Simulated scan of single mutants.
Amino acid sequence: MSQQTTSRNVCVITNVDSLLGYALAYRFLEAIRNNEDPTADSKRKIRILCRDTQGLELKRLEEMGAELMKVNYKEEEKLREAMKNVLAVVLIPENSSNRLKEAENLLKAAKHQDVKHVGLISFVGVDRIHKSGEEANSNEFRNLKEYHQIEKMVKESFSGNKHCIVRHQVFNQLYYFMAPRLEGQNQLPLPVKKDAKWGSVNMIDVVEAIHNLARKSHEQARNNTPDADAFYNKNIYELTMDRTMTAENMAHEIGQGLDREEMRFEEISGSDFRKYLESMKDDKRFKERPDAHGDPSEGRDGWWSIPIGKFLNDQNIETMIEFWRLACHNQQDVHSDDLRKLLERQPQNLKQYFKTNREQFRRFK
């Protein structure tokens, strides 16, 4: 390994304004603070990119040791500055109308600064849109198609073993926004057919899996043993549960977890789902992160993994709807063993997740 590579000690996490970006940054910073990998470079840094540095949430990460950097993805020089001394980038595409161009600009800056590895976070199913029968120019899956296009950009810019793509299913944490209906009306309202199959995962498990993947891959690179375990050098990981379920089955498991046996699924339109989430965006219950001290080892959400209303912008809501729309085309019945292997344990199932976080959901009733 060259001296240039070993002198790079910065890992960049983009889009820390998002729920996943924030949770990932928290986990990586926590690992450094707790010295979880004593053989790692003690001078390593986590640089987090965001659109706005204001607010208590990002200050918390800065207090944990993060190097906070506000970026405008149109400013080429600023992006190149963000990529200085960077060994690896975790690219979480922005929830914006300019997502494609912003990802392209960041990848160009990373390439210019000779970043060694890019990990992209994407969605399960983006490679299956063509099987849905929709025309290539249709806007039905505009957001998911953009994720797939970004995947292609990453593969082209950082070919071979210089990239990996991590796809995940919809997060269980999304259901906090539905807590008023879950707890108040015993209903799970979703824009999906009752017999469509899809999967839902605990974001804490996904975050832990990504952290383990980064740690193992870095360890192999540091020891110059890239072939020690080929599993940690794949280009694509599908972080899913070991089985998919129908919405009716999910409602039943959620009801059991919340101790509400009469929980029922209600199929609603995409427009009604959009209106509901837009109302939750401004709901006072979701204005600020709750003072929740969770235990990730038990799958219990803390303040870093509970969503708030500001995450519900138009692109984020539309992406969720597209995920279920693809399920209606029978293209989300996807399952893999990657999540279990990265965790080295079974991921938390839906019933366990809701049972563990029962009191958290009740506070949003």
Score class of each variant (00 low, 15 high):
Glu30His: 11
Arg215Met: 14
Val206Glu: 03
Leu68Cys: 12
Asp314Pro: 00
Ile254Pro: 00
Leu49Phe: 14
Asn172Lys: 02
Gln348Ala: 03
Cys50Ala: 15
Lys193Thr: 02
Tyr73Pro: 08
Asn98Ala: 12
Tyr232Pro: 08
Pro296Val: 03
Asn95Val: 01
Asp227Met: 07
Glu344Arg: 11
Ala209His: 09
Gly119Tyr: 08
Leu79Asp: 01
Gly309Cys: 07
Gly257Arg: 02
Met250His: 11
Met203His: 04
Gly270Met: 01
Ala292Val: 14
Val166Cys: 07
Phe364Tyr: 15
Ala25Ile: 06
Leu174Met: 15
Arg142Asp: 11
His117Thr: 07
Asp205Val: 00
Phe364Leu: 10
Phe311Asp: 04
Lys284Ser: 10
Tyr276Leu: 08
Thr244Leu: 11
Trp324Gln: 05
Leu144Met: 15
Pro38Phe: 13
Gln346Val: 04
Glu140Val: 13
Leu87Asp: 08
Asn9Pro: 00
Lys84Phe: 09
Ser269His: 13
Glu134Ser: 12
Gln149Thr: 12
Ser122Trp: 00
Pro226Cys: 06
Ser7Thr: 02
Glu278Lys: 12
Ala214Leu: 13
Met203Pro: 00
Ser297Arg: 10
Gln256Ile: 07
His329Glu: 10
Glu298Val: 04
Asn9Glu: 11
Asp195Glu: 15
Val12Ala: 00
Ala251His: 08
Lys111Glu: 04
Leu20Tyr: 11
Arg243Leu: 08
Leu258Gln: 04
Arg358Val: 06
Asn212His: 15
Asn95Ser: 10
